[in-house]
Simulated assay, not measured.
Amino acid sequence: MVIMMRAVMAAAALALSLPTTAHAAEQPAVVPQVLPMGAAVSALPLAIENRTGYQRTSFKHWNAGEIPADGCNTRAEVLLSEAVEYPEIGPGCALTGGVWWSYYDDTTVTEASKLDIDHMVPLAEAWDSK
């Protein structure tokens, strides 16, 4: 009997917490819009960024990669996945040979050491914009 009473009280509390149909009907429907890029960016809300608590060292982004035993860290994994011509993988994941295409200046690169692996959004900016 006590369990049934608690169930009835919980159901009543839930019913009272739900919006009424009249209130729900007052809410305007959200209609998706297609805007030109400039207008869409201008419509984004502005807010003050907050870097409180940010420390780059908190992000262990150069980790051991997908297969820790192969010696390839995240940088090497990205280089391998983005290669136009796959490089040879030596001991400790030393990459030799291979070809990469640079998005930034439309050139091919044949030395992995000449490439930087960048975050699409810098860590600090992502933190600030949370």
Rank of each mutant, 00 (worst) to 15 (best):
residue 47 A to M: 14
residue 9 M to Q: 10
residue 100 W to D: 02
residue 88 E to T: 14
residue 83 A to S: 14
residue 30 V to S: 10
residue 85 E to K: 15
residue 87 P to W: 05
residue 18 L to M: 07
residue 56 R to V: 02
residue 16 L to S: 01
residue 87 P to S: 07
residue 81 S to W: 11
residue 105 D to G: 12
residue 14 L to G: 02
residue 30 V to Q: 07
residue 130 K to A: 13
residue 84 V to E: 15
residue 28 P to C: 08
residue 122 P to I: 03
residue 99 V to D: 07
residue 80 L to T: 15
residue 56 R to M: 00
residue 1 M to G: 14
residue 51 R to E: 12
residue 109 V to G: 02
residue 52 T to S: 15
residue 43 A to S: 15
residue 45 P to L: 00
residue 43 A to C: 13
residue 70 D to S: 04
residue 22 A to T: 13
residue 54 Y to S: 09
residue 10 A to Y: 03
residue 124 A to P: 04
residue 93 C to T: 04
residue 59 F to S: 05
residue 13 A to M: 05
residue 11 A to V: 01
residue 109 V to K: 05
residue 2 V to D: 08
residue 75 R to W: 08
residue 70 D to V: 04
residue 5 M to F: 09
residue 106 D to M: 09
residue 22 A to H: 11
residue 13 A to I: 04
residue 32 P to D: 05
residue 8 V to M: 02
residue 21 T to E: 06
residue 121 V to R: 08
residue 129 S to L: 06
residue 56 R to D: 02
residue 63 N to A: 08
residue 114 K to D: 12
residue 36 P to T: 10
residue 104 Y to D: 11
residue 92 G to H: 07
residue 94 A to F: 10
residue 73 N to M: 11
residue 108 T to M: 13
residue 104 Y to S: 10
residue 26 E to G: 05
residue 125 E to H: 07
residue 124 A to L: 08
residue 34 V to K: 08
residue 26 E to S: 12
residue 82 E to F: 03
residue 113 S to G: 09
residue 73 N to H: 14
residue 47 A to I: 14
residue 106 D to K: 12
residue 78 V to N: 00
residue 124 A to N: 04
residue 118 D to W: 05
residue 84 V to T: 15
residue 15 A to N: 09
residue 64 A to K: 13
residue 72 C to Q: 10
residue 8 V to L: 06
residue 115 L to G: 01
residue 126 A to G: 13
residue 14 L to E: 07
residue 129 S to F: 00
residue 52 T to W: 10
residue 45 P to C: 00
residue 37 M to P: 06
residue 66 E to S: 14
residue 51 R to V: 11
residue 89 I to Y: 03
residue 56 R to E: 01
residue 29 A to N: 04
residue 85 E to W: 06
residue 20 T to Q: 04
residue 1 M to K: 15
residue 88 E to V: 12
residue 74 T to G: 00
residue 24 A to W: 08
residue 67 I to M: 07
residue 120 M to D: 08
residue 108 T to N: 12
residue 11 A to S: 11
residue 111 E to C: 05
residue 42 S to V: 05
residue 105 D to N: 15
residue 58 S to P: 00
residue 115 L to F: 01
residue 109 V to P: 01
residue 115 L to Q: 02
residue 67 I to Y: 10
residue 62 W to T: 12
residue 108 T to Q: 14
residue 126 A to H: 09
residue 34 V to W: 09
residue 60 K to M: 02
residue 126 A to K: 06
residue 44 L to D: 02
residue 110 T to E: 11
residue 96 T to E: 03
residue 4 M to C: 04
residue 117 I to P: 10
residue 128 D to E: 14
